[in-house]
């Protein structure tokens, strides 16, 4: 464990909690892409099956359970409890355009053609594009609630911090995982446009609105 991975995990946890609280407190999931949340639930489910097979540490186990629990709670709030506030018309990204190519790639490019490894690889690739429906929805509505931009900021920051974690681990432990690194770079690049808008607008107290 190093400071980048710890702050990265805490940033990820903050994002997940911010989103859950936003929906619960405002009793509304307006502006939130349910499809992205489904993808995140799928990412955690396929990545954390090793909860059933190996114990790494209490921290590892507890964080995985929190991530999976919050992901499914968020999907439940969006599609069941506050379904009336779900903006399905603007959440129109075709999930099959992500899941199918990612599934194919995971079968072609992986470290080991075993069940758990293929699922882990699938989850790594899927996570790198899972935010696309959310970013697509914001580009369609042309705006985002400020609390939603904070959610996206911490979510994007977490994988950026993981990039530093991988530099750290390569330098100090000689450890690196090319699949996770490449997917992590792609994932972070997808946020660059949002990061620019977040720093230049939201941090200056303005509302995040895209030129329609």
């Amino acid at each position: 464990m190093n400071i980048f991975r710890l702050t990265g995990d805490l940033s990820h946890l903050a994002a997940i909690i911010i989103l859950l609280l936003k929906i619960w407190k405002t009793r509304s999931c307006a502006g939130i892409s349910g499809k992205s949340q489904i993808l995140f639930a799928l990412v955690f489910t396929t990545r954390y099956l090793d909860l059933l097979t190996s114990f790494i540490s209490f921290y590892n186990t507890i964080m995985k359970l929190i991530y999976i629990g919050c992901a499914y709670a968020t999907v439940y709030l969006i599609y069941m409890k506050f379904k009336a506030t779900y903006d399905g018309n603007h959440d129109s990204f075709r999930l099959e355009f992500l899941v199918v190519p990612v599934g194919g790639l995971a079968c072609l490019v992986n470290h080991d053609f075993s069940f758990l490894e293929i699922l882990w690889t699938f989850s790594i690739y899927l996570e790198s594009v899972a935010i696309l429906p959310q970013l697509f929805m914001i580009s369609k509505t042309g705006e985002a609630e400020t609390i939603t931009t904070h959610y996206l900021f911490f979510l994007g920051l977490y994988r950026a911090l993981y990039l530093f974690n991988w530099i750290w681990r390569f330098y100090f432990e000689g450890f690196f995982d090319m699949i996770a690194i490449v997917a992590g770079v792609v994932q972070t690049i997808l946020y660059c446009d949002f990061f620019y808008l977040y720093v230049t607008k939201v941090l200056k107290g303005k509302k995040l609105s895209l030129p329609a």
Binding site: R5, D9, H12, D50, S54, I56, S57, N60, M63, K64, Y67, W120, Y162, N165, F175, D177, A180
Partner: peptide, 10 residues
Amino acid sequence: ETLKKDKDEL
């Protein structure tokens, strides 16, 4: 050991 090591990230 390496397997456990390289899957210790969330």
